[in-house]
Amino acid sequence: MRSTFNSWYEKKMRATPELSEETDTIENWLDNIKTIAIVGISRNRYKDSHFVGRYLQNAGYNIIPVNPGADEILGNKAYPDLKSIPETVDAVDVFISPDYVPEVVNQALEIDPKVIWLQLGTGDHPDEKQKAEEAGTLLVQNRCMKVDHQFLIRDRDKGK
């Protein structure tokens, strides 16, 4: 039996044709990405960014921490910025102040991820969304990668 929250999530994320299409696209990307750079991930395990990173790591994704003030987070080498990462990044998950989002999106587009994900609290950025789309990159905003994974992938896979 599905929980009340699962039912709410399903109704909310598929409330309109546009949201339903976006949710289907997100599910497809979450199925196909392997490496996620998390910009602004905290060393503090009680912060949302750290919790989300740990959840995604436990779900099987390769997490690359991006935090200029850290050497290592979640047992992985941390990098000061996206351009310093020596491997291919499929997705960039962003946990930073809305003021810095344009700079991070520009940096992300230089490394050519499949998805740029602006977490809840990073604001609406229509110019950045358009810039990403023109570059052929999906930009998701105002959604949580952990929550979407939990309800679109994890719960689906439990039934297998």
Rank of each mutant, 00 (worst) to 15 (best):
E21R: 07
P126G: 05
S20D: 00
W8P: 03
Y100V: 10
G121P: 12
P126W: 01
V105W: 01
Y46N: 15
S3Y: 01
Q107D: 15
R156I: 01
A132Q: 05
M145E: 04
D93S: 11
E133G: 03
D148S: 14
V89Q: 05
A70S: 14
N62H: 12
F151E: 11
Y55P: 08
N32C: 11
T122G: 01
V89E: 04
K114Y: 09
Q150E: 14
G69F: 06
T23G: 00
H125C: 07
I111H: 07
E22K: 13
K34L: 11
N32P: 01
S3W: 01
D112L: 09
D31S: 15
H125Y: 03
V92K: 12
N28I: 03
R54K: 14
A91T: 14
M1E: 04
E18I: 12
Q57L: 08
N32Q: 15
N44D: 15
I36F: 02
G60V: 00
P113Y: 12
N76M: 11
T88K: 15
G69A: 10
Q119W: 01
A135V: 09
F5K: 07
D112C: 10
G123C: 06
V101H: 03
I111W: 08
L118M: 10
R45F: 11
I36W: 02
N142S: 11
E128P: 00
P86Y: 04
D71C: 06
K12M: 10
P98E: 07
G136W: 12
D124Y: 09
S84I: 03
V92P: 12
K12Q: 13
G60I: 01
T25K: 09
E27N: 05
Y61F: 14
Y100H: 13
R54S: 12
V39G: 06
D48L: 13
S20F: 00
G69L: 11
L82P: 06
I26M: 13
K160N: 11
D157L: 14
T16L: 07
S84G: 04
G40L: 04
G40F: 06
Y55W: 07
D124N: 06
G53K: 06
Q119A: 08
L120P: 00
S3P: 04
N67C: 08
V105C: 10
T122D: 00
Q130G: 01
P102K: 11
Q141Y: 06
R156K: 15
D155R: 15
E72H: 06
D127W: 05
